[in-house]
Amino acid sequence: MFIDTHLHLIDRKRLSYPWLSDVLALDQDWTYKDYARTARRIGIDAALHMEVDVAPDQIDAETAFVRDLMGQPDSLIVGAISSARPESAEFAEWLDGVDRAAVRGVRRVLHVVPDELSTAPQFRESIRALGAADLPFDLCVLARQIGIATELVDSAPNTQFVLDHCGVPDIAGGAFDDWASAVTKIAQRPNVSAKISGITAYTGDDWSAETLRPYVEHVILAFGWDRVVWGSDSPVCTLQSSLDQWVAITHALMAGCSEGERAKLYSGNARRIWKL
């Protein structure tokens, strides 16, 4: 069974998503009901909701939305990875008041802001504060930014980091060597884990499980079985596949692994990192 560590849900009546109009394929409601119906059929028995870059003044409202879903009978939702603004002088106050019953981690998408944002003293102080608060930080960066992410990791050695989407390799473009080198370097930091999540979104139209295999296997080799987790990145994964296809691909790629190795990737490591 899987713990989905990277589920996006979209409710346009309740929350505002400024970026959504630029991605027409995703510009619709993506409901918990629809997700749960498929998830239960394909072996997902828990999920962390990943922030969806709502308008900044709605960050806490998104957490409330997730908390409501957690309260539904037999809900699959076990927590939220919240959006935040670590660059803000108000971050410490926000962190003090965060809903710890729901929030299990924090993310600030770094590929939509200037590279230098994460190098600012305020940003790095905030990320160090996450370590003191025992909240992991998801690193959402492009492949070219993994080096910048590594510098951020080095500035906060007591904070747990999770590299999203295998570091977003350009699979469609066939890029591998530079990405692989950067992944190897960041994996040398013991406080970083990697998320094998929805990388079908970075392929072209003509792909198969074997297209993805070198990228997934390199991440596992670099990080080891104790520092990898699984996520769907639903609905972003639907840009080139479907949720059930991504689960099937995962099983195909892990067919030669031991039961213990699969258990760590599918759920065990996630339980430890986010204390589920």
Rank of each mutant, 00 (worst) to 15 (best):
residue 232 S to K: 03
residue 212 L to R: 03
residue 197 S to Y: 09
residue 203 T to F: 11
residue 186 I to A: 06
residue 192 V to W: 04
residue 233 D to S: 09
residue 230 W to R: 08
residue 162 V to C: 01
residue 194 A to C: 14
residue 218 H to W: 11
residue 213 R to F: 11
residue 201 A to Y: 07
residue 222 A to K: 03
residue 191 N to T: 08
residue 205 D to L: 12
residue 225 W to G: 02
residue 196 I to S: 10
residue 200 T to Q: 09
residue 163 L to R: 02
residue 192 V to D: 07
residue 171 I to R: 08
residue 170 D to S: 09
residue 220 I to Y: 04
residue 163 L to F: 02
residue 179 W to S: 02
residue 198 G to D: 03
residue 183 V to T: 08
residue 168 V to D: 03
residue 201 A to F: 05
residue 161 F to W: 06
residue 237 C to S: 05
residue 225 W to Q: 15
residue 199 I to Y: 04
residue 233 D to P: 01
residue 209 A to R: 14
residue 195 K to P: 05
residue 233 D to K: 02
residue 217 E to R: 11
residue 190 P to W: 02
residue 182 A to L: 10
residue 161 F to L: 05
residue 210 E to D: 15
residue 198 G to M: 04
residue 166 C to P: 05
residue 188 Q to L: 15
residue 213 R to K: 14
residue 236 V to W: 06
residue 163 L to N: 00
residue 160 Q to K: 07
residue 236 V to L: 08
residue 159 T to R: 01
residue 179 W to H: 07
residue 175 A to W: 04
residue 189 R to N: 11
residue 219 V to I: 09
residue 162 V to Y: 00
residue 162 V to N: 01
residue 163 L to D: 02
residue 174 G to T: 09
residue 183 V to P: 14
residue 185 K to W: 05
residue 215 Y to L: 06
residue 212 L to T: 00
residue 228 V to G: 03
residue 215 Y to G: 01
residue 193 S to Y: 08
residue 230 W to L: 07
residue 218 H to Q: 12
residue 212 L to G: 02
residue 164 D to R: 02
residue 233 D to R: 03
